[in-house]
Every structure is written in C-alpha cells, then in structure tokens.
C-alpha cells in the first residue's frame, strides 16, 4: 500500500484482468499447438519444443502453428491498442481504424495494386498501406472541413467506407478468375501460411511501437477531459493528437501489412476491457492482451470450425464485429432514450 491516497494507481480490477488475459493467452497457445488435424502427443510436442523432435512434428508445430499463433498475438495487440487510442482521443466507443475508413481503404489499395496495376508481393502490401492512409486522410480531411467531430466524424467514415466497399466489389467483378482468388484475401485478412519472417516483422513492430504508445498514452488521460481543459492543464493538445494518431495508424498499418484487414478487434477489445474493469483508464497492457487473445482465439476457430476448409480470420471477426456493433448501438440508444 502506498503512502499516497490520491496518486494515480493501477486499478486492482485492471491488474486482475491483465493476469486472466495472460493466462488465457497461454491456454490458447497450448490449444493451438495441440489438437486439430494433426494432434501430437504430449511427449512429441515436448520433444519438439525442446529441440529434438521428429521432422513432421517440427514442421507442423515450429514452422506452421507457432509463427501463426505469435503473429495473431502481435496483430491483435497492435489493433487493440490502435483502437483504444482512437476511441479515447475521439471520446467515442465507435471510433476505430475500421470506422475511419482505414481498413476498407487498405483493401481498396491492395485491389488496385493487384488488379489494375497488375503488381504482386510487397507492392500489394505497400498499396494496401497507401490505400489505408489515403482513406483515413480523406475521412479526417472531410471531417475537418465540415467541422465534424466525434459522432459526425464517424458518419463521414461510414459514408467513405461504403463508397470504397462498392469500389472493391466493382474491381472484383472486373477481375480475372485467378486474380480474383488472390484479391479476395485482401477483403478479409487471413493468417493462412504465415511465415516466420512475417511473424517476426509484426512482433518487432510491436516491440517498437507499443512502448511509444504507452508513453504517449499518458496524454489520453488529459485529452479525455476535452481539448480546452487538456490545454488549460498544460498539454500541447494539437501535437499530442497528431502524435497519438500517427502511432495508432502505424499500429494498424503493421497489422494490415502482416495479414490484411482484420476487423472488429480494434473496435471491441478496448471496450471489453472497459466493461470488465469498470475503469476508463485502461492503459495499454490490458487492451493489448485482450486484442491478442481475441485474435488468436478467432484464428483458432477459423482454422478448426470447418476444417479442413480454412475460414479467413477476418471474415470471422467481421461477423462477430457486426453483432457486437448492433449490441453497442442498442445499448447506447437505450441509454439516451
């Protein structure tokens, strides 16, 4: 117990929530590595993890399942922290990279690169990032010109996202069959056949960006009080908002570059933590763990639900996200009635 009564301290519920989420991730790790089409015995799994396993188990566990699982954790953490920053700067539980057009814009970028420019590989990733950034800029630009903030900015985002979704459909109908197959993956993110190099990229990106987000995250406590009060309390508001937005966009871009657009995580993970802990000041760790857990769980379901057919994980999170959004809107309406 600290001698201070009023010092900002971590909420005990938040600490407990972080612990449970960590345990959840560990349990999920075990469930992902075992089970499924190829279910190694405990002794084979142990042998593989200790570095003297048989070739088949090594291949499946170390080269297929482990990088995929680790990448899911990293992507989920990046998306959730990004969403948490969006929501707390906008003061709105609906704000997220999905709803400012970043996600669908990145799909458009990938489709344009793939189908119109006929490029492939890293160029598509670059195209996706460019598309995401451009549509996010478009949305914030329109919102800025129209002086729309909060809820109204999200309306602008929804309108732009609808336009881009139509563009995506159109591009797909125009595509050759082979191209369309590859292109469709960009509509919904997927972790199929994810390599170690991609897993290391996303984990490295998280190791770089999450500490920055945690450092800047202190400013969210002030921004939440409204711009005027934040500035009156000595926070450089405009600079803080830009810096936070930049980190949030970089985190989303990292996730999209790894596995394409995976919706819903950024929207839901921070809100779930908030509801579970009854605190507004959820920090960075709890949403990161929640996002990691949700994404890894969704990916496990996506792999096993209709096995051997693999559902793209983005499709699954998208469907869950739709349901969640309806629930969120309904509970908000009930509150305002």
């Amino acid at each position: 117990m600290s001698k201070f009564r009023f010092a900002p301290h971590a909420n005990p519920l938040l600490k407990r929530c972080q612990l449970y989420l960590l345990l959840g991730c560990m349990a999920l790790c075990l469930a992902t590595l075992t089970g499924g089409q190829y279910d190694p015995s405990a002794s084979r799994l142990l042998a593989t993890l200790l570095g003297h396993g048989d070739p088949l188990t090594n291949l499946i566990i170390l080269d297929l399942r482990l990088p995929r699982f680790l990448a899911a954790l990293g992507i989920g953490a990046a998306l959730a922290v990004s969403g948490s920053i969006f929501q707390r700067t906008a003061g709105n539980p609906l704000a997220s990279p999905d709803l400012v057009g970043f996600t669908v814009g990145s799909a458009s970028g990938a489709l344009v690169t793939l189908l119109l420019l006929q490029l492939s590989g890293n160029a598509v990733i670059l195209g996706a990032l460019l598309g995401g950034v451009l549509s996010a800029l478009l949305v914030t630009g329109i919102a800025h010109v129209a002086q729309a903030r909060g809820e109204r900015m999200i309306m602008v985002g929804i309108a732009i996202a609808a336009l881009l979704a139509a563009l995506n459909e159109y591009l797909l109908t125009r595509a050759e069959l082979d191209d369309a197959q590859e292109a469709r993956l960009w509509l919904f993110g997927s972790l199929d056949s994810l390599s170690w190099s991609k897993a290391l990229m996303v984990l490295g990106g998280c190791a770089l960006l999450l500490p920055i987000a945690a450092q800047l995250g202190q400013r969210l406590r002030l921004l939440e009080l409204g711009n005027d009060l934040a500035e009156a309390l000595g926070l450089p508001v405009a600079y803080s908002q830009y810096a936070l937005l930049l980190v949030a966009l970089a985190l989303t871009a990292l996730a999209i570059a790894t596995a394409g657009p995976i919706g819903f995580i950024a929207l839901a993970a921070p809100q779930l933590v908030k509801r579970l802990t009854h605190t507004s000041d959820i920090g960075i760790v709890a949403p990161a763990l929640m996002g990691a857990l949700l994404t890894a769980a969704a990916d496990l379901l996506a792999q096993r639900l209709l096995a051997p057919f693999q559902i793209p994980v983005g499709l699954l999170t998208g469907a869950l996200g739709g349901l969640y959004l309806i629930y969120l809107l309904a509970s908000q309406w009930r509150r305002t009635l």
């Binding site: 707390r88 003061g91 009080l225 009156a232 908030k274």
Partner: peptide, 24 residues
C-alpha cells in the same frame, strides 16, 4: 480555466479526476 464544455470520461472516479489537476 474551467471551460463550459468540461466532460468527465465514462466511469472515472472523483479522486482520479481531481488528481489530474496536478498534470502541470
């Protein structure tokens, strides 16, 4: 300055809110 538009984040407690006044 206490602006007209001050808003409390959802779920924040009084002690937590007041201690944010020490930010400067």
């Amino acid at each position: 300055l206490l602006p007209q538009s001050a808003q409390a984040p959802e779920g924040i407690r009084v002690g937590e809110l007041v201690s944010r006044g020490r930010f400067p």
